[in-house]
Design a protein around this nucleic acid. Structure first.
Lengths: 225, 225
DNA sequence: TTCACTACCAAGCAAGCGCTTGGTTTGTTA
DNA sequence: TAACAAACCAAGCGCTTGCTTGGTAGTGAA
């Protein structure tokens, strides 16, 4: 709050400058092929990318369909050839990122060996989604929640449960191993808050690398030996 | 995110069921007498309370001046006898709570003896503003930031600086005393995020008392001896 | 009684909104 | 080259929005 929000300057193309982004790219490509998320080259995909950007920047209700149409170079009425209504655009933005977040966390968790590494994966995955190429959609998911109509909220929530469960189960394990002291669900919420708030202040291109931020958050959760 | 938001059921009257609220009440009374915040009995004050409630519930841009007028029992046009425009209503809501937050934190910090208690005061003060009688206005301050026009944002930001400085100075002291390991400004943001996110999940009337939540957050910041 | 002031009403304007409709272009396949 | 669907245009409808205007009721001081 009260700090200017940083916008990702990267477009929706895949960035291949690190392990994290390579696997993110592979995952996104698979989800596109499976039809879970739409191709960023298609008209619908370009519309969704514009929507994510503008919904993040101005908020859902201050973004008009005329704004969105202008960004992709069509007239406002033509939007409704691709989406039933404005709500469905917001839903599509959120739905795609919700699916990707859970899929990727699953991959990351099974790759991690120790419980400590799994907790780190929880934190790292969320921070990468917030500050990576999917940052716009993730920010919209987090901050435009109330703008969604009730039935569509429920559909997202349904999809979201599996993601929450991955956090829950991992932190339960961490508690059993005495890695953490705070009650797991309370800790989950506190960490989640600390992480999403980084939208407002953390600069990926700044002096502090993302991995360092991951470590700082991890040090809040797990007391070092 | 993705959890229903809890709304404070308390009205704008002062609650006298604890030390914290007693001093909060005294402070608010003083600020009213000084003209810093408006009397909740006055038409303007009742309008601001309604605005805080509705802006929190529906967001600024989904709340119409007709909605606000209806809640206090006047017609929409009559609003503009009290405020120049809709933006000024949002500004007034934010401005009053910004002033109160900083004033109260100052009192709390000078009452605390040890640095550890001062850090606890930072956390406790913010949590009390979020989950106490001023919860609506505080939530609006946090989550309707972008809805404010640029010049009014700057005015709030100006007022906010003193508050940030109190956090900064206290955490610098904590670092000097080796109470914390994370860099002070980074820790400030992480804690701030964890605290404000509690809007979405913590229930003051639930099984966990607020003081307990304060302790949990404190345990993230300061490693126990 | 007069005057000024606060608080509000009644009516409506101008602009912007999401969305519809009927028709046209464009690219692909048979 | 004919047929077809996807993508888009042009125009505008019906509604909601923030806000204006000109006037009125109630109240307290001189």
């Amino acid at each position: 709050m009260l700090q200017p929000v940083q916008f990702s300057s990267s477009d929706s193309r895949l960035e291949l400058d690190g392990d994290a982004n390579v696997s993110m790219g592979v995952l996104l490509r698979r989800l596109i092929d499976e039809g879970c998320v739409s191709d960023p080259e298609s008209p619908k995909g370009r519309l969704l990318a514009a929507a994510a950007r503008q919904f993040r920047q101005k908020g859902f209700s201050r973004t008009t369909v005329r704004d969105l149409a202008a960004e992709v170079g069509i007239l406002s009425g033509s939007i409704f050839h691709h989406f039933k209504n404005k709500d469905e655009i917001l839903f599509a933005v959120m739905n795609e990122v919700v699916i990707a977040m859970e899929e990727r966390l699953q991959v990351r968790l099974s790759a991690a060996t120790s419980t400590r590494d799994k907790v780190r994966a929880l934190i790292e995955n969320e921070l990468q989604f917030i500050h990576g190429p999917t940052g716009d959609a993730t920010a919209v998911l987090i901050y435009e929640w109330r703008a969604l109509s009730e039935p569509l909220q429920q559909k997202i929530l349904e999809r979201r449960r599996a993601y929450f469960k991955l956090w829950h189960d991992t932190l339960i394990k961490a508690e059993e191993e005495a890695l953490i002291t705070v009650e797991p669900d309370c800790l989950r919420q506190l960490l989640h808050g600390a992480i999403v708030w980084s939208i407002h202040w953390y600069q990926p291109q700044g002096p502090m690398p993302l991995e360092s931020l991951v470590d700082q958050v991890l040090s809040l959760a797990i007391k070092s030996e």
